[in-house]
């Protein structure tokens, strides 16, 4: 028996919007720790790791570890039917091949349940090693989204370079090239508008902008984004989900021949 009641149901809607274009089918794993997902895109260039901790749910019952295979597009379709203020409950019986999403309006005058078929998905879990990153950039998520969108109108790849001057996002394409430099800026009144750069070593890596743009679909989940870079490692683009956990995107770099 599994029953997870999430008062902020729209968090789940936002999570699905953030991952459904990157990953088609995925196993959601439910344990005493929380509701999680790890999945790669079909070309194995990007990996998404989601954790919604059990403490973040109003009610969390998970009698045994369960892995539920879902088509994310279908799940997104169902969650779109929930109102933004609705409480969402995820329910599944042991051994069932369906999952039920129950939507309750805040004043309890409307209750809907949507039952979705589960699927068998062969997926392997990857071990993500703890790494010391050369540079960690924290910036407003909307600013990062803007930069990725702007640069992708010029080129296909972005070079992210961190030096003591700041973080530079560069691209080049047929029509020309573009560079955006963001400097550390902690003097603004609101911490969510600041940019902080923690650099242990300068680092410069190249990534496909198409994926970066896809990650920025998680922007509604968090006002800030953390970008962790190390040479010879996938970049981590992390959006914290307030009180609940995180969604992390890992993107393998493009490497010189």
């Amino acid at each position: 028996m599994l029953e997870l009641r999430l008062v902020q149901g729209n968090l789940l809607k936002k999570v699905l919007e953030a991952v459904k274009d990157l990953v088609t089918d995925a196993n959601f794993d439910c344990s005493s720790t929380g509701f999680s997902l790890q999945a790669m895109d079909s070309s194995h260039v990007a990996l998404v790791a989601l954790l919604l901790r059990s403490e973040g749910f109003e009610h969390y019952r998970c009698d045994r570890n369960v892995s539920m295979g879902m088509n994310l597009n279908n799940m997104a379709k169902m969650l779109k039917c929930a109102g933004n203020d609705d409480i969402v409950t995820i329910k599944a019986d042991d051994g069932s091949d369906t999952v039920t999403f129950m939507f309750e309006s805040p004043n309890q005058d409307k209750i809907a349940d949507f039952e979705m078929k589960l699927m068998d998905i062969d997926s392997e879990h990857l071990g993500i090693p703890e790494a010391e990153y050369h540079a960690i950039v924290r910036m407003p998520s909307s600013e990062f989204a803007r930069i990725c969108k702007d640069l992708s109108s010029i080129g296909d790849t972005v070079v992210i370079s961190v030096t003591k001057e700041g973080v530079k996002f560069s691209t080049r394409g047929d029509i020309g090239n573009a560079n955006v430099v963001c400097r550390q800026n902690t003097t603004v009144d609101k911490p969510e508008e600041s940019t902080t750069i923690e650099m242990h070593e300068p680092v410069s890596l190249t990534f496909a902008l198409r994926y970066m743009n896809s990650f920025t679909k998680a922007t509604p989940l968090s006002s800030t984004v953390t970008i962790s870079l190390s040479s010879e490692l996938p970049v981590v683009v992390e959006y914290k989900i307030a009180e609940m956990g995180y969604i992390r995107f890992y993107l393998a770099p493009k490497i010189e021949d």
Binding site: V45, E124, H125, P234, Y250, P253, E256
Partner: peptide, 14 residues
């Protein structure tokens, strides 16, 4: 030129 690497080149299966 640049070659796209994959996640599985960095992270091993559990």
């Amino acid at each position: 030129g640049c070659n796209q690497s994959t996640i599985t080149e960095f992270f091993g299966k559990i």
